Simulated scan of single mutants.
Amino acid sequence: MSRHPRLAAVAIATAALAVLAAGPVSAGEPTVSDPRIVAHFDFDAGQTPENIALEPDGSADLTFAFAHQVARVTRAGATTVLATLPAVANPQTPNIGAAITTGIARAHDGTLYVGYATGTAENGIWRIAPDGGAPEQIAQLPADAFPNGLALDERCGTLYTADSARGVVWRVPLDGDAPAVWATGAALRPTAALPFGANGLKIHDGAVWVSNTARGTLLRVPFAEDRTAGPIETRATGLEGVDDFAFTGHGDTVLAALNTPNKLELVRHDGTHKTVLTAADGLDNPTSVAVRAKTVHVPSAAYFDTTAPDPNLLLARISRNKL
Protein backbone atom coordinates (compact mmCIF):
# COMPACT_ATOMS: atom_id res chain seq x y z
CA MET A 1 0.00 0.00 0.00
CA SER A 2 1.34 3.43 -0.85
CA ARG A 3 2.17 5.92 1.90
CA HIS A 4 -0.73 7.97 3.13
CA PRO A 5 -0.52 11.55 1.85
CA ARG A 6 -1.24 13.24 5.19
CA LEU A 7 1.43 15.80 5.99
CA ALA A 8 3.60 14.60 3.12
CA ALA A 9 5.63 17.79 3.31
CA VAL A 10 6.31 17.44 7.04
CA ALA A 11 9.14 14.94 6.83
CA ILE A 12 11.18 17.34 4.70
CA ALA A 13 10.13 20.71 5.99
CA THR A 14 10.37 20.08 9.72
CA ALA A 15 14.10 19.47 9.40
CA ALA A 16 14.45 23.23 9.11
CA LEU A 17 12.70 23.97 12.39
CA ALA A 18 14.62 24.99 15.50
CA VAL A 19 16.68 22.58 17.59
CA LEU A 20 14.97 21.29 20.73
CA ALA A 21 15.59 23.32 23.87
CA ALA A 22 16.90 21.45 26.88
CA GLY A 23 17.35 22.10 30.56
CA PRO A 24 18.23 20.43 33.85
CA VAL A 25 15.81 18.28 35.79
CA SER A 26 13.86 20.48 38.18
CA ALA A 27 12.88 19.40 41.68
CA GLY A 28 9.28 18.24 41.73
CA GLU A 29 8.79 18.15 37.96
CA PRO A 30 6.98 15.11 36.49
CA THR A 31 8.95 12.09 35.32
CA VAL A 32 7.80 9.51 32.78
CA SER A 33 8.76 5.84 33.15
CA ASP A 34 7.73 2.24 32.44
CA PRO A 35 6.55 2.68 28.83
CA ARG A 36 4.71 -0.27 27.32
CA ILE A 37 2.62 -0.75 24.20
CA VAL A 38 -0.85 -2.07 25.02
CA ALA A 39 -2.34 -2.21 21.51
CA HIS A 40 -1.10 -2.46 17.92
CA PHE A 41 -3.30 -1.38 15.01
CA ASP A 42 -3.63 -2.23 11.31
CA PHE A 43 -1.77 0.36 9.26
CA ASP A 44 -3.01 -0.97 5.91
CA ALA A 45 -6.62 -0.70 7.14
CA GLY A 46 -6.10 2.99 7.93
CA GLN A 47 -6.03 2.45 11.70
CA THR A 48 -3.65 5.36 12.21
CA PRO A 49 -4.56 6.91 15.60
CA GLU A 50 -4.66 10.69 15.33
CA ASN A 51 -6.22 11.90 18.57
CA ILE A 52 -7.38 10.66 21.96
CA ALA A 53 -9.98 11.21 24.66
CA LEU A 54 -10.22 9.20 27.87
CA GLU A 55 -13.21 7.41 29.38
CA PRO A 56 -13.81 7.38 33.16
CA ASP A 57 -12.61 3.77 33.38
CA GLY A 58 -9.28 4.64 31.71
CA SER A 59 -10.21 3.33 28.28
CA ALA A 60 -9.01 5.45 25.36
CA ASP A 61 -11.25 6.72 22.56
CA LEU A 62 -9.12 7.15 19.43
CA THR A 63 -9.75 8.62 16.01
CA PHE A 64 -8.37 6.35 13.28
CA ALA A 65 -7.49 8.99 10.69
CA PHE A 66 -7.60 7.11 7.40
CA ALA A 67 -10.17 4.50 8.44
CA HIS A 68 -12.56 7.39 9.29
CA GLN A 69 -13.34 5.60 12.53
CA VAL A 70 -13.58 6.18 16.26
CA ALA A 71 -12.44 3.21 18.35
CA ARG A 72 -12.27 2.43 22.06
CA VAL A 73 -9.19 0.70 23.50
CA THR A 74 -9.30 -0.74 27.01
CA ARG A 75 -6.34 -0.56 29.35
CA ALA A 76 -5.73 -4.21 28.49
CA GLY A 77 -5.58 -3.40 24.77
CA ALA A 78 -8.95 -4.73 23.54
CA THR A 79 -10.15 -2.57 20.65
CA THR A 80 -13.76 -1.93 19.57
CA VAL A 81 -14.87 0.34 16.71
CA LEU A 82 -17.56 2.71 18.00
CA ALA A 83 -18.44 4.56 14.80
CA THR A 84 -17.41 5.11 11.21
CA LEU A 85 -17.76 8.50 9.57
CA PRO A 86 -19.52 8.51 6.17
CA ALA A 87 -17.41 7.91 3.08
CA VAL A 88 -16.64 10.98 0.96
CA ALA A 89 -16.78 10.44 -2.80
CA ASN A 90 -14.25 13.06 -3.83
CA PRO A 91 -12.38 14.47 -0.82
CA GLN A 92 -10.48 17.72 -1.32
CA THR A 93 -8.85 18.04 2.08
CA PRO A 94 -6.27 20.85 2.05
CA ASN A 95 -2.66 19.63 1.68
CA ILE A 96 -3.74 15.98 1.76
CA GLY A 97 -6.58 15.22 -0.63
CA ALA A 98 -7.85 12.37 1.56
CA ALA A 99 -10.61 12.49 4.16
CA ILE A 100 -9.40 11.95 7.73
CA THR A 101 -10.85 11.96 11.22
CA THR A 102 -8.86 14.29 13.47
CA GLY A 103 -9.52 15.72 16.94
CA ILE A 104 -11.81 14.20 19.53
CA ALA A 105 -13.43 15.56 22.70
CA ARG A 106 -15.68 13.84 25.24
CA ALA A 107 -18.59 15.35 27.18
CA HIS A 108 -19.40 14.17 30.70
CA ASP A 109 -22.45 12.25 29.46
CA GLY A 110 -20.29 10.25 27.06
CA THR A 111 -21.08 12.18 23.88
CA LEU A 112 -18.07 12.28 21.57
CA TYR A 113 -17.26 15.15 19.23
CA VAL A 114 -14.94 14.46 16.30
CA GLY A 115 -13.28 16.57 13.63
CA TYR A 116 -13.62 15.34 10.03
CA ALA A 117 -11.38 17.01 7.44
CA THR A 118 -12.69 16.36 3.94
CA GLY A 119 -12.62 19.54 1.85
CA THR A 120 -16.30 18.91 1.03
CA ALA A 121 -19.73 19.53 2.57
CA GLU A 122 -18.85 16.94 5.24
CA ASN A 123 -15.97 19.08 6.48
CA GLY A 124 -16.44 20.07 10.12
CA ILE A 125 -17.45 18.63 13.50
CA TRP A 126 -19.46 15.45 14.03
CA ARG A 127 -21.23 14.07 17.10
CA ILE A 128 -21.45 10.46 18.28
CA ALA A 129 -24.18 9.82 20.87
CA PRO A 130 -23.32 7.99 24.11
CA ASP A 131 -25.43 5.01 23.03
CA GLY A 132 -23.84 4.86 19.59
CA GLY A 133 -25.79 5.18 16.37
CA ALA A 134 -24.84 6.97 13.18
CA PRO A 135 -22.52 9.98 13.57
CA GLU A 136 -24.24 13.34 13.00
CA GLN A 137 -22.64 16.46 11.57
CA ILE A 138 -23.29 19.38 13.92
CA ALA A 139 -21.11 22.06 12.30
CA GLN A 140 -19.91 22.61 8.76
CA LEU A 141 -16.63 24.42 8.19
CA PRO A 142 -15.43 25.94 4.92
CA ALA A 143 -13.96 23.47 2.44
CA ASP A 144 -10.51 25.06 2.75
CA ALA A 145 -10.48 24.66 6.53
CA PHE A 146 -8.65 21.76 8.21
CA PRO A 147 -10.24 21.04 11.62
CA ASN A 148 -7.62 19.37 13.79
CA GLY A 149 -7.15 19.55 17.58
CA LEU A 150 -10.48 19.81 19.41
CA ALA A 151 -11.52 20.77 22.95
CA LEU A 152 -14.87 21.18 24.68
CA ASP A 153 -15.82 23.98 27.06
CA GLU A 154 -18.85 22.17 28.41
CA ARG A 155 -19.81 24.92 30.87
CA CYS A 156 -20.23 27.37 27.99
CA GLY A 157 -21.53 24.81 25.48
CA THR A 158 -18.73 25.51 23.03
CA LEU A 159 -16.13 23.55 21.10
CA TYR A 160 -12.84 25.04 19.94
CA THR A 161 -10.90 23.56 17.04
CA ALA A 162 -7.52 24.40 15.56
CA ASP A 163 -7.51 24.91 11.79
CA SER A 164 -4.17 23.70 10.42
CA ALA A 165 -4.70 25.05 6.89
CA ARG A 166 -6.04 28.54 7.61
CA GLY A 167 -4.01 28.91 10.80
CA VAL A 168 -6.89 30.05 13.03
CA VAL A 169 -8.97 28.75 15.94
CA TRP A 170 -12.68 28.21 15.37
CA ARG A 171 -15.43 28.57 17.99
CA VAL A 172 -18.24 26.05 17.45
CA PRO A 173 -21.39 26.56 19.59
CA LEU A 174 -23.29 23.42 20.51
CA ASP A 175 -26.66 25.21 20.28
CA GLY A 176 -26.62 25.17 16.49
CA ASP A 177 -25.28 28.68 15.89
CA ALA A 178 -22.80 28.99 13.05
CA PRO A 179 -19.09 28.43 13.75
CA ALA A 180 -16.96 31.57 13.86
CA VAL A 181 -13.25 32.28 13.83
CA TRP A 182 -12.26 32.91 17.45
CA ALA A 183 -8.50 33.59 17.26
CA THR A 184 -6.24 34.71 14.44
CA GLY A 185 -2.65 35.88 14.12
CA ALA A 186 0.68 35.12 12.50
CA ALA A 187 1.66 32.84 15.39
CA LEU A 188 -1.14 30.42 14.43
CA ARG A 189 -0.48 30.31 10.70
CA PRO A 190 1.46 27.76 8.67
CA THR A 191 4.61 28.74 6.80
CA ALA A 192 5.60 28.64 3.14
CA ALA A 193 7.84 25.67 3.92
CA LEU A 194 5.25 23.70 5.89
CA PRO A 195 1.51 24.11 5.27
CA PHE A 196 0.33 22.90 8.69
CA GLY A 197 -0.02 25.61 11.32
CA ALA A 198 -2.32 25.45 14.37
CA ASN A 199 -2.63 21.77 15.27
CA GLY A 200 -3.14 20.54 18.84
CA LEU A 201 -5.54 22.37 21.15
CA LYS A 202 -6.45 22.25 24.84
CA ILE A 203 -8.41 24.48 27.25
CA HIS A 204 -6.46 25.10 30.46
CA ASP A 205 -6.50 27.68 33.24
CA GLY A 206 -8.46 30.43 31.53
CA ALA A 207 -6.99 30.04 28.06
CA VAL A 208 -6.95 28.04 24.86
CA TRP A 209 -3.51 26.52 24.27
CA VAL A 210 -2.47 25.66 20.72
CA SER A 211 0.55 24.01 19.13
CA ASN A 212 1.83 25.19 15.74
CA THR A 213 3.53 22.41 13.78
CA ALA A 214 5.10 24.63 11.14
CA ARG A 215 6.67 26.96 13.69
CA GLY A 216 7.46 24.40 16.39
CA THR A 217 5.73 26.44 19.06
CA LEU A 218 3.31 26.14 21.97
CA LEU A 219 0.93 29.09 22.27
CA ARG A 220 -1.48 30.40 24.90
CA VAL A 221 -4.54 32.45 23.95
CA PRO A 222 -6.25 33.81 27.10
CA PHE A 223 -10.00 34.30 27.38
CA ALA A 224 -11.07 37.91 27.81
CA GLU A 225 -13.94 38.63 30.21
CA ASP A 226 -16.44 38.34 27.33
CA ARG A 227 -14.84 35.03 26.20
CA THR A 228 -13.24 36.60 23.13
CA ALA A 229 -9.60 35.82 22.38
CA GLY A 230 -6.89 37.83 24.09
CA PRO A 231 -3.36 38.43 22.75
CA ILE A 232 -1.49 35.31 21.67
CA GLU A 233 1.44 34.39 23.91
CA THR A 234 4.30 32.13 22.80
CA ARG A 235 5.08 29.79 25.69
CA ALA A 236 7.65 27.44 24.11
CA THR A 237 9.71 27.23 20.93
CA GLY A 238 11.96 24.64 19.28
CA LEU A 239 9.32 21.89 19.37
CA GLU A 240 10.18 20.29 16.05
CA GLY A 241 7.24 18.47 14.47
CA VAL A 242 4.91 19.16 17.40
CA ASP A 243 1.45 17.65 17.07
CA ASP A 244 -1.03 17.54 19.97
CA PHE A 245 -0.24 17.71 23.69
CA ALA A 246 -1.68 17.38 27.19
CA PHE A 247 -1.18 19.03 30.57
CA THR A 248 0.34 16.83 33.25
CA GLY A 249 -1.68 18.26 36.12
CA HIS A 250 1.37 20.11 37.45
CA GLY A 251 0.55 23.73 36.60
CA ASP A 252 1.41 24.64 33.03
CA THR A 253 3.72 21.67 32.47
CA VAL A 254 2.93 19.90 29.19
CA LEU A 255 3.70 16.61 27.50
CA ALA A 256 3.87 17.17 23.74
CA ALA A 257 3.95 14.61 20.93
CA LEU A 258 6.72 15.43 18.44
CA ASN A 259 5.52 13.54 15.40
CA THR A 260 8.39 13.32 12.95
CA PRO A 261 11.22 13.13 15.52
CA ASN A 262 9.43 10.27 17.34
CA LYS A 263 9.62 11.95 20.74
CA LEU A 264 7.49 12.76 23.74
CA GLU A 265 8.64 16.10 25.11
CA LEU A 266 8.21 17.46 28.64
CA VAL A 267 7.65 21.22 28.31
CA ARG A 268 8.16 23.17 31.52
CA HIS A 269 6.23 26.29 32.52
CA ASP A 270 9.21 28.47 31.53
CA GLY A 271 9.32 27.03 28.00
CA THR A 272 12.40 24.85 28.42
CA HIS A 273 11.89 21.21 27.50
CA LYS A 274 13.44 17.78 27.39
CA THR A 275 12.76 14.42 25.76
CA VAL A 276 11.20 11.77 28.01
CA LEU A 277 10.28 9.03 25.47
CA THR A 278 11.66 8.10 22.03
CA ALA A 279 11.27 5.55 19.25
CA ALA A 280 13.29 3.15 21.39
CA ASP A 281 10.33 3.11 23.81
CA GLY A 282 7.86 2.28 21.02
CA LEU A 283 6.89 5.68 19.62
CA ASP A 284 6.20 5.65 15.86
CA ASN A 285 5.17 9.16 14.79
CA PRO A 286 3.24 10.03 17.98
CA THR A 287 0.25 12.26 17.35
CA SER A 288 -1.35 13.14 20.69
CA VAL A 289 -1.22 12.69 24.46
CA ALA A 290 -3.67 12.15 27.30
CA VAL A 291 -2.95 12.09 31.05
CA ARG A 292 -5.14 10.59 33.76
CA ALA A 293 -3.85 10.31 37.35
CA LYS A 294 -0.52 8.44 37.13
CA THR A 295 -0.88 7.23 33.53
CA VAL A 296 0.08 8.91 30.27
CA HIS A 297 -1.37 7.64 26.98
CA VAL A 298 0.45 8.24 23.69
CA PRO A 299 -1.03 7.10 20.34
CA SER A 300 1.36 6.68 17.39
CA ALA A 301 0.16 6.75 13.77
CA ALA A 302 3.33 5.58 11.94
CA TYR A 303 2.58 8.05 9.14
CA PHE A 304 6.19 8.28 7.94
CA ASP A 305 7.51 4.84 8.86
CA THR A 306 8.55 3.36 5.51
CA THR A 307 10.02 0.12 6.87
CA ALA A 308 7.73 -1.48 9.46
CA PRO A 309 4.90 0.91 10.35
CA ASP A 310 3.54 0.14 13.81
CA PRO A 311 0.56 2.31 14.74
CA ASN A 312 0.01 1.69 18.42
CA LEU A 313 -1.11 2.95 21.81
CA LEU A 314 1.59 3.31 24.45
CA LEU A 315 1.00 3.75 28.18
CA ALA A 316 3.58 4.99 30.66
CA ARG A 317 3.74 6.01 34.31
CA ILE A 318 3.92 9.66 35.25
CA SER A 319 5.07 10.76 38.69
CA ARG A 320 6.62 13.75 40.43
CA ASN A 321 10.39 13.88 40.86
CA LYS A 322 11.28 13.97 44.56
CA LEU A 323 14.72 15.61 44.15
Rank of each mutant, 00 (worst) to 15 (best):
A9L: 15
A11M: 09
A13L: 00
A15I: 01
A16V: 02
L17F: 00
S26K: 13
P30I: 03
V32A: 11
V32Q: 12
I37Q: 12
G46C: 01
T48F: 01
F64G: 04
H68M: 11
R75D: 12
T80Q: 15
A83N: 10
A83M: 12
T84P: 01
L85Y: 06
V88S: 05
N90Y: 00
Q92S: 09
N95K: 11
A99I: 07
A107G: 12
T120A: 13
T120R: 11
E122T: 03
R127Q: 15
G133Y: 13
P135W: 01
E136M: 10
I138L: 08
L141A: 05
L141V: 06
A143D: 14
L150S: 04
E154I: 03
R155V: 10
R155M: 04
S164T: 15
R166N: 11
V168I: 13
L174C: 08
G176K: 07
A178K: 15
A192E: 11
P195G: 03
N199V: 06
K202S: 09
T213L: 15
T213K: 03
A224R: 15
R227V: 02
R227Y: 14
T228A: 11
A236F: 08
L239F: 05
D243L: 06
F245K: 00
F247K: 05
D252S: 13
V254D: 06
A257H: 10
A257Y: 11
A257I: 09
N259E: 08
K263I: 00
K263T: 10
R268Y: 12
D270C: 06
D281L: 00
D281R: 01
D284R: 05
N285Y: 12
R292E: 08
V298I: 15
D305F: 03
L313H: 02
